[in-house]
Design a protein around this nucleic acid. Structure first.
Length: 425
RNA sequence: GGAGAAGUGGCCGAGCUGGCUGAAGGCGCACGCCUGCUAAGCGUGUAUAGGGGAAACUCUAUCGGGGGUUCAAAUCCCCCCUUCUCCGCCA
């Protein structure tokens, strides 16, 4: 949510931002509502002040055993008018809030302008594509052949876009998650959290999934509970409605959770393999940061995600999302795209964003600056560190050998009981 | 799931036979004063959001959340949430 004051004082900036994001929202619509709101508040509060005065007068008279029936009569009418005004006011406020909640964050000035993902500039590359003397295969081939991935039975148990990992794949997935968590804990100063995987409506609203993107979520029937699409949701909302001490910032949180996405509107996309599933595991990083340092923090968080890929020896590139491709809550986003030889493509494996105070305002997360009375909103950052399922794909495709076996990256071997190579049975 | 108790300001805790109570008192905190001493005392201040105002300031709302009764609600009524105790069930 944007600052109401910014909307009022500088609507041009918001109009500009919406244009860059090719949003159709009309700022004038909001300004009209806001005018109406102020007008109604003025009228209503004037009457309330009168009522409060009269109430004191009535109380006084009653204590003196005097008659107050005339005042009571006129106040009855006043109350009626207040009720009407307030009803009208809450309608206007609801419309205004709905509008405000639908506005995406304003891109940081450094974010390149662009219409779609095709306009995202590459910031840097790390490593090189692995040399292969044979035609690399795709992970679903390798996975099924090596008995690690089972799509058919997952479809039987549930439906499409689910997978069963077994044997080495199940363990490798667990190894990857543990390896990632250990790295963030021991080397990056994160605190591990295991949050609920089901959250309520307010929590989903705090990070921006609701009210606009309900169709992307799984909702539990007859409740206001939702399955989390990412641990960003519970982690960022962990301190919602709270005022933190300044020295608690930056607060670095990480969690390994399943993520559930309906993938509405992605029919036909990535239908093979485990790139796009309704349920996948992810290690997430969240930072509740001081507003003065949130952009350094974004660079650091991106580096933490990169560190995982580097330790695994996986070639990747960092791209910067352009204005037209950024998520709703983000002010600036870097995506990490790992090289997948089987698909002959770079694929997103992490996305690190600074949301500035956009989510903090929605979720009401503040801190008390030292030596200042005024509480301020924190800045929130989130990033995958990494998507575990996609990392499993990257390891399989990059470490495959001509005979269909897969070499276990050295960094993972301690987590795999020393296993060095995954071979056909 | 069943029965009961409770939810007040940063914290503790009054108020809850409706009325000048944004809310006594205490603690904590901030600033000032006093004091030549490892203590105490005194004074003032100490919420958030919104409206009006250049500002001083002023008005409105907020006593778990929502709705209702009333001229008027922290106080009465209804629904929901959370916590605690007992029973049942369970990992």
């Amino acid at each position: 949510m944007l600052d109401l004051k910014l909307m009022q004082s500088n609507p041009e900036a918001v109009r500009e931002s919406l244009k860059k994001r090719s949003s159709k929202l009309d700022v004038q619509e909001f300004l009209t509502l806001d005018e109406k709101r102020k007008e109604l508040i003025g009228q209503s509060e004037e009457l309330k002040a009168e009522r409060n005065r009269a109430s004191g007068e009535i109380a006084q008279r009653k204590r003196n055993k005097e008659d107050a029936s005339d005042l009571i009569k006129t106040m009855g009418e006043v109350s009626g008018r207040i009720k009407k005004l307030d009803a009208e006011l809450s309608e206007v406020e609801a419309a205004e809030k709905e509008w405000l909640m639908a506005v995406p964050n304003i891109p940081h000035e450094s974010v390149p302008f662009g219409a779609s993902e095709d306009d995202n500039p590459v910031v840097r590359y790390w490593g090189e594509k692995p040399e292969m003397s044979f035609t690399p295969r795709e992970h679903w081939d390798l996975g099924v052949e090596l008995g690690g991935l089972d799509f058919e039975r997952a479809a039987k148990l549930t439906g499409s876009r689910f997978v069963i990992t077994r044997k080495w794949a199940a363990r490798l997935e667990r190894a990857l998650a543990t390896f990632m968590l250990d790295t963030h804990l021991d080397e990056h100063g994160y605190t591990e959290i295991t949050p609920p995987f089901i959250v309520n409506r307010d929590t989903m609203t705090g990070t921006g999934q609701l009210p606009k993107f309900e169709e992307d979520l799984f909702k539990l029937r007859d409740t206001e509970y939702y399955l989390i699409p990412t641990a960003e949701v519970p982690l960022t909302n962990l301190h919602s409605g709270e005022v933190l001490e300044e020295d608690q910032l930056p607060m670095l949180l990480t969690a390994h959770t399943p993520c559930f996405r309906s993938e509405a509107g992605s029919y036909g996309k990535d239908t093979k393999g485990i790139i796009r599933l309704h349920q996948f595991m992810k290690v997430e990083m969240v930072n509740l940061a001081h507003p003065d340092h949130s952009y350094e923090a974004l660079e650091k968080m991106t580096a933490c995600a990169e560190k995982i890929l580097q330790k695994l020896g996986l070639h990747y590139r960092v791209i910067e999302l352009c204005t037209g491709d950024m998520g709703f809550s983000a002010a600036k986003t870097y995506d990490l795209e790992v090289w997948l030889p089987g698909q002959d493509k770079y694929r997103e494996i992490s996305s690190c964003s600074n949301c500035e105070d956009f989510q903090a305002r929605r979720a009401n997360i503040k801190f008390q600056p030292k030596g200042s009375k005024k509480k301020q909103f924190v800045h929130t950052l989130n990033g995958s560190g990494l998507a575990v399922g996609r990392t499993l794909v990257a390891v399989m495709e990059n470490y495959q050998q001509e005979d269909g076996s897969i070499v276990v990256p050295v960094a993972l071997r301690p987590y795999m009981g020393g296993l060095e190579i995954i071979k056909p049975e």
